[in-house]
């Protein structure tokens, strides 16, 4: 009975050490995120100085052709629950947009589907544009740096989300072990 109690105590110690290690990593990632966001805001301000206040803001966002470049895979059965990936080259993410219009007919025997004519009458997939294009073609380097900072911060937030889930998992495992320890201890005292 004592060996079981010792075993539980050792497991509790392991969980506790793991908890504090995870907490330490979480603080480091949070610090990293703070710096990335701070640098992002700094570069955004520099871009505003170069381009003008009105030209860098939420008004420039084109919601119609907005498509997420970074998405998250969720796997509940694994330790790393969230995994970010770029959806640029993922073929299943393309959304077909059907439009009605004039089509070229009898183009060739090999083509089963007729080729659309013109941009506005095309049956095309929704293209993923680089968001920086919302702000023009020739954007200052500071805006590109700002974009890179925020892209990095998206990756950091995914890492933080994983660490926080791990922390909550360790907490529940620790509490379960404490309950088991109390049960075993009460049996020993009897």
């Amino acid at each position: 009975m004592m060996t079981e109690l010792q075993q539980i105590n050792e497991e509790l110690d392991t969980k506790l050490i793991s908890f504090f290690e995870t907490l330490s990593s979480l603080y480091q990632e949070q610090e990293k995120l703070n710096d990335q966001i701070k640098d992002g805001f700094w570069n955004m301000s520099r871009a505003r100085y170069n381009m003008g206040i009105k030209f860098v803001g939420i008004d420039q966002i084109h919601e119609d052709n907005m498509c997420a470049l970074t998405k998250v895979k969720v796997r509940e059965d694994e330790t790393e629950m969230f995994e970010g990936y770029s959806s640029l080259h993922a073929p299943e993410e393309t959304q077909p947009v059907e439009t009605v219009g004039l089509r070229k007919r009898n183009v060739g025997q090999s083509q089963e589907v007729s080729t659309p004519v013109g941009d506005d009458t095309a049956s095309k997939t929704k293209k993923q544009h680089d968001p920086i294009r919302w702000f023009g073609v020739l954007v200052p380097p500071s805006l590109r740096q700002c974009q890179n900072q925020f892209k990095s911060s998206v990756e950091t937030t995914i890492a933080i989300a994983n660490l926080k889930q791990k922390l909550l998992g360790l907490k529940s495992e620790y509490l379960d072990l404490q309950k088991r320890k109390a049960e075993v201890a009460s049996n020993v005292s009897k």
């Binding site: 966001i37 992002g40 860098v56 997420a68 970074t70 968001p131 925020f150």
Partner: peptide, 24 residues
């Protein structure tokens, strides 16, 4: 793939949308 949503002030939203998380 799932999305990342953001609730924030104008600069935070602009930054993260520039980072490529926005979608309808």
């Amino acid at each position: 793939g799932k999305l990342i949503a953001v609730i924030g002030d104008e600069d935070t939203c602009t930054g993260f949308l520039l980072g490529g998380i926005g979608e309808l």
